[in-house]
Design a protein around this nucleic acid. Structure first.
Lengths: 335, 335
DNA sequence: TACCCTTGCGCAAGCGATTACATGCAACAA
DNA sequence: TTGTTGCATGTAATCGCTTGCGCAAGGGTA
């Protein structure tokens, strides 16, 4: 019924070993033989059995992508970049979401990864996440996206710089009373958010402006989280004239909170986000753009290199991609 | 080094056959034996080799998800629903994007699916897409999401009704001059869009309103596409007072086009979309909500049933989920 | 007591590749 | 001529499970 390497070998008049070598492009196969084998394989509509191949070779030819969310813009966009690269490389992409801060419950990823993938790509897992630690303990090539952890290659943006750029932009517009909206309590910040916060502080201090803890709020890393945080800022007596929001989705929420209070972004309060989310332009949101899909692509690419060159660290310990300030209507000179 | 079923068998004092049966919960295993085997497996930190299991059993334990886009809201949300169900079921999810109308080039999915998955879930592939035909020719259980094709189980919403509801809503508000923005040229519409269009026509005709082809525009199924389409409608002499937009993302674009012309949604022109996109509320967009994540969940669930009960068609030929009109500020009584 | 079923388990034959090792042959140098 | 070397290929062990079949023991039934 389904045809095997045996059938191809017989039809081509060679051994299965030769078929295997020929089809995989290994050296030491006569070009004529190779051509004949390939032809026969096509004629017979032969498809290699991945299971058999995996069992025999010990390689699975697939890589696992571990992410806390699938449907959120950032994650879906990274995933999309990753997928393109892996598809080109002929690798299977095993998608796996893990439990995340907002409590959606999932099985721990490490056991689900063992023996089924050759490498792992982890998107925005906090560097101290025990789940991540377990995954790393598996001992396979792993690459991080969006976070950094010592000894593990990864691609991020320069979050400090991003925070600095955003804040500096507000400062340049004459704002002196600048608030912050982030995703978690300061102490529990992921590296990314923490670094963005550091950038903010740097910019403020360089400009000799006060860093006022009362103008910092944190909520969930969502539209609603941003909305709540902004609402809180607005009801504060010492209301800032500009706010640095650590992600565009939160900024969307912040904008909504403003509207609910009859305020207009850019006019009453300036808002700058980070991401350059698909809809940031639509909402006229100033933001620090990060090359999200590229982060996925590059991380995947580097993982493939790591896989080919043996588990040797692929030179790239950690890569930081450039960001770019995009000025839109949500930021304007202070009144 | 890595421990095998052999090791577990030896340690438990049984044969590998028994270990296999015990661990998989098959019948005809003494409960005491089973318990012992399980304990030993845990103690030894045994993890079954999927490759070996697949090779021996012929089942891959994974299902392929084929989608034209990953990063777009609808697709990412469906995917998220699917992933949850599959993870619970212990199935691997092989993600694969395919080439789509907007020209991103990919390998044909069918060959990449052969022998590596037990079933396929196809998201919003046009029913007459040759790629889909090839996939179906693989002869494995397949389920569709968002589109319908005779003989293939799938889950959709009642798109005709969605179109009707949206249009009727506008009619109820007193609008008589109602335009349409869709994703493609009418003739090339997917079933979903085509049905939504039919719903629109039905509602118009029932209300004895003219269906004016000049008030129909089509662009890409994106924010930009919607923007362009709306721009076109706006420059039209016979400008509609309300527009039914076939997706929220296009509606976002339409809103943007309006703003660019100094018009306000709901005030100058009413806009109603379909989806209830995450950000629809933020943009105050009236829309026909569809349970996107549920579609993914249900389709996945039904596929699992199909898999368990043998390839027998799982009863469910095609399921239609209910939609709900959500009225927000983008629609208002005609001036 | 004799017979039949059921239950629990082991035996061993696959599943379909990969790959270390062996082999044969041609070319080449000594 | 003979010994080396290297290339192209074949042999067969191996990867780690699943599963059809057979067998023994125990319990019911006639």
């Amino acid at each position: 019924m389904t045809i095997t390497i045996r059938d191809v070998a017989d039809a081509a008049g060679v051994s299965t070993a030769t078929v295997s070598r020929a089809l995989r492009g290994l050296a030491n196969v006569d070009e004529q033989t190779r051509a004949r084998v390939q032809q026969v394989a096509v004629d017979l509509d032969y498809v290699i059995s991945p299971s058999a191949s995996r069992l025999a070779s010990g390689r699975t030819g697939s890589i696992g992508v571990v992410t806390p969310y699938i449907a959120r813009w950032f994650f879906a966009t990274v995933l999309s970049g990753v997928e393109g690269v892996l598809q080109n490389a002929g690798m299977d992409l095993l998608l796996m979401s893990v439990s995340s801060a907002d409590g959606h419950l999932r099985l721990p990823p490490a056991p689900r990864l063992r023996r089924r993938v050759d490498a792992v790509l982890a998107i925005s897992l906090p560097p101290d996440d025990p789940q991540l630690t377990e995954v790393l303990a598996l001992g396979m090539p792993t690459s991080l996206i969006g976070t950094q952890r010592a000894g593990v290659p990864g691609v991020t943006i320069d979050d400090v710089q991003a925070g600095r750029m955003a804040t500096q932009h507000l400062i340049n517009l004459g704002h002196t009373s600048i608030g912050v909206i982030g995703g978690y309590q300061v102490d529990a910040l992921h590296t990314a958010e923490h670094d963005r916060y550091r950038g903010y502080v740097q910019a403020m201090q360089t400009a000799n402006l006060p860093v006022d803890r009362n103008r910092e709020t944190y909520g969930y890393f969502t539209v609603t989280g941003g909305e709540q945080a902004m609402t809180q800022l607005l009801t504060h007596p010492n209301r800032p004239t500009a706010v640095f929001v650590m992600s565009d989705e939160m900024a969307f929420g912040a904008i909504r909170a403003m509207r609910a209070h009859g305020l207009t972004p850019g006019k009453d309060i300036s808002i700058v986000g980070v991401d350059n989310h698909d809809l940031a332009e639509l909402l006229d949101l100033s933001t620090v753009a990060q090359p999200v899909a590229d982060m996925g692509r590059i991380a995947a690419e580097s993982l493939l290199v790591q896989l080919r060159t043996g588990a040797a660290n692929s030179g790239l310990e950690s890569l930081q991609l450039p960001t770019q300030l995009i000025v839109r209507g949500s930021t304007a000179p202070v009144a």
